[in-house]
Structure formats: C-alpha cells, structure tokens
Design a protein around this nucleic acid. Structure first.
Lengths: 241, 241
DNA sequence: CGACGGTTTGACTAGGCTCAAAGATCGTGG
DNA sequence: CCACGATCTTTGAGCCTAGTCAAACCGTCG
C-alpha cells in the first residue's frame, strides 16, 4: 500500500518530507508521490543516471543515497558540480529536447523514482519550483566556495550545507548526519586534493570542530562554525525558511 | 519607431539577435521585443540591478553593457558568479515571491528593458527557456573552471566563453571582441588575484595566444586554444547549435 | 588470506598570494 | 587644452597554501 511505503515505520519518507518542507503539499500531491514510491529503481554506486550531452528522459526523485553531477576533463581531472540527496530532483527541465549539461552519477547505491507530474497539482508544482530555485542557490554557493574560500572554510561550508539539506528531510539533527562521501569525492567537489582534505580534516578534528568516524559526521557547533566561515543558508522564497 | 530601434543602422539589435539565435522568433515575438526596446533604462557602472535577499521585480533583458551576479564575503572577498551580456536575461524565475539569490551589479554602464511577457508567444517562451538552460550551463562551466583549471586555463576558458556568447549577438567575430572587464573583475570571477591575472596574461601575450589592447581582445586561434584547455561550448538543446 | 578501496603519513615542489609602489590611461573640469 | 584625480595595469621580492609522488596502514569482504 502507498501509505505503508511513505510512512515506513510510522515515519514519512525523507523525500516526501523534504518536498513538504518546501511547500505544504495537498493530499493529491502526497498521493501522487506515494504512488511514485512504488516504482522505485536502484542504481549501484558509480552508475550514471544521466549522461552529458544525451537527451534527458523524465526527471527523477532521489529516494535514498547520494548522487552528483560530475564533469570529467580529458586528462582525468574530475569536478563534482552539485549533489543530489534524498528528496532532491534530478533532470528537471522545462525545455523540450533538453540535453543533459552534465553527467549525473551515483556516489553510493541510489534509489530513485520517476518524478510525478506536477502540472495539475499546484502545491506539487510549487515544491518543484522551490526545489529548482534551491538547486541554483546551491550552485552559486559552490562557485563562491571554490572561488573564494580556503581549504578549511570550503570543508566547513560544504558540511554545513549538507547539514541544512539533510535536516529538511529529517536525515540530520543536532549537527549529526550520515555522510556518503569519501575524502576523494570531497576533494573532487572542493577543487582540492584528497591529501589536502585529509590533512585539513585532521586539523579540524584536533581543533574540536567536528567528529568524523566511519561515515558519521558530527559538527560540534554548527552555529559558531557558520559564523566563522561566513556561511549563510540558502534562501530563495519569502515563504520558505 | 520600433523598427528603427531594433534595426539601428539597418542592423538587428544584438539582444534580439541573440534571442533569435536561441529559437527562431515569430513576428509577434519580434514586435514584443521591439516594443520593449522603447522603455530602456540605464544603470551606471557599479549600480545594483537586484539585491541579494530582496524580492525580485520583473525580469530584465540586457541591451547594452555587462552585468554580473556577485557575492561579497563579510571580509571583502568578492566572487563574480556569472555574467549578463547583451541579450541575456536577468532575474528570470517562475517562482512566486522569489528572492534574489545574489546581487546583480552593473560592471559597466548597462542598459536594460523589462522582459516582454512570453506566455502567449510560444517562440519567445522557448527562447527564454533556452536562455535559462544556458545560464545553468554557464554556471556549471564556472564551477569546473575555478575548481579544476589552473590560472592559464581558466583565463582562456573564460575568454572563449565570452567569444561564443558575444558571437550569438553579433558582437564578436574572428576571435575579436570588446571586453568590458578590468583585470580586477576577471580575478574576482576566476578566484585568483589581479596580480596573478596580470602576470598570466603577459605570458599568454608572449606566447602569441592573444592580443589585448585597451578593451579589445583578439584570440588568435580560438579553435586551438579550445583544444589545449579542453574547452567545450555549452550545448543545451538538440535544436540549438 | 589476499585484494581492494579508502585513509594516513612524509618529503619536497610549485603555483599563486601578499604587500607595496611605480607607471599608464582616461574622463572631467577649470 | 591641459592638469588633476581616479582607476587600471605593471613590476618586484618573499612567502605560504596546496599539490605531487610515493608508500604504508587499515578495514572489510569474498
């Protein structure tokens, strides 16, 4: 049943929770999403969900796992452009015959489902619009991060962004969350080397700023971290917090 | 008269030419644009067209001059996120109550006009959609540029992007165009210092890669430059070159 | 147990930054 | 028409953040 899927163990599915937090959803929207949850599809890590330059099929809603838009240079250098976390939408364009401007790859095992059509469900359409606006805000944050912050600031800023985003879907709380990335992936996102990420993380641990064991991150004081690096949460709409 | 404005000296206005190159425009689209040209408004250099966090009024079409999305850090560091050249659209969002996610500032004296409503003019709406998709592609290019290219590559890649974009509006040809940026602005865009931009430009001149006198840039061999830095022009739609 | 992916460490290098000041260029007003 | 100020470009010397290359370590999974 749809209800059992979206409220597994009595909890709203993180993806639905995120969209709900972007714009309060009407019952028809919830129903459409719950229906979509039924046709989930799984991609193993490293698999491509979209390929650069190829036509985009239908948009996807991320249910579980982390994906990323990736650009690969001819000589092997790799840049992660942006991330797709649970509740994020991949490949959402209103352009006919759109081509994917970047490859989207699964960083972990990723489950997705087709994005329900929002054209006749106003609150759902609104949630998609907000989601899209946030995507752009994250992209802008990424430019500023790699353009003007040093290694220490870049890492903190990115970890704070993850914290805020995962909080929307209920996957983070109290500065704590599960991070699906290797140090290598972080370095590819931040325009640094994994060696430098490693050393910088060590100094951050030594400074008591965070704990990072296995895949579990704890930011000891998100608020003070945010103020030291001048991090400001994305804000795109007067109605959304 | 509208016609005399859009075809000054027998030439189609660069802004219209750009939109036309994104999607062939029907007569009603041209007429709407020519009408809008009549209510042009001028902003002097450094003036803000939109302010971060403030509600966005109506979208603007750039007619002349260069604008840029800017993010300023508390300590004075500055990052240019993206550029608005003639024919580009600023502040185009389908979100109600959208807030500007970055300040947009005039880099030179800039003339704009309100963007004509495209909802009942399909080809115009299509041009806007393509323009928006290109905006995103340029943002992605910017991330890759500052994340993974060295100073030399960053400059070439950016100058090539300007060349391609200005070519669409007829403002560049044969590798030659008028660049409205100071070395300082370039450094703010590329995440480098103006001193380093200056030195790198000198080495590029010495290598015969370009000429840059006053505000006139000549890329001596755009094709070979593109191949040396692995630059690929943005491509967002199967129908658009 | 070995292979694999990820993390950590060391020694050395280099690309780009900082600070500071001197030249160019250009628009403007007297 | 020239002088002035403001803005931009250029140069120099020294430093530092982050990169490179290489190897060891570690956990885990088949």
């Amino acid at each position: 049943m749809a209800t059992s899927l979206s409220r597994l163990r009595g909890v709203v599915h993180p993806a639905i929770k995120r969209l709900q937090s972007l714009s309060p959803l009407e019952p028809a929207a919830i129903a459409a999403l719950e229906m979509a949850l039924g046709s989930a599809q799984r991609f193993p890590a490293r698999r491509e969900l979209f390929s650069e330059g190829r036509p985009i099929g239908s948009a996807l809603l991320v249910l579980e796992g982390w994906a990323a838009r990736v650009r690969q240079l001819p000589d092997g250098r790799r840049q992660l452009i942006s991330f797709g976390l649970p509740g994020d939408i991949l490949g959402l364009y209103q352009l006919e015959e759109a081509l994917a401007s970047t490859t989207v790859a699964a960083l972990t095992s990723v489950t997705v489902c087709p994005l329900p059509d929002g054209t006749h469900i106003p609150t759902l359409a609104q949630a998609y619009a907000v989601s899209r606006a946030l995507d752009e805000a994250y992209l802008i944050a990424q430019v500023t991060r790699i353009g003007r912050l040093n290694a220490h600031e870049r890492i903190i800023d990115l970890l704070l962004e993850f914290y805020e985003r995962l909080s929307m879907s209920g996957l983070a709380a109290d500065g704590r969350y599960h991070i699906a990335l290797t140090q290598e992936a972080i370095s590819d996102a931040l325009g640094l080397t994994s060696v430098h990420i490693n050393r910088t993380l060590q100094s951050m641990r030594a400074a008591g700023e965070l704990t990072w064991t296995g895949r579990e991150v704890v930011l000891h004081d998100p608020i003070s971290l945010a103020s030291t690096v001048g991090h400001v949460p994305a804000r795109v709409c007067a109605r959304v917090g």
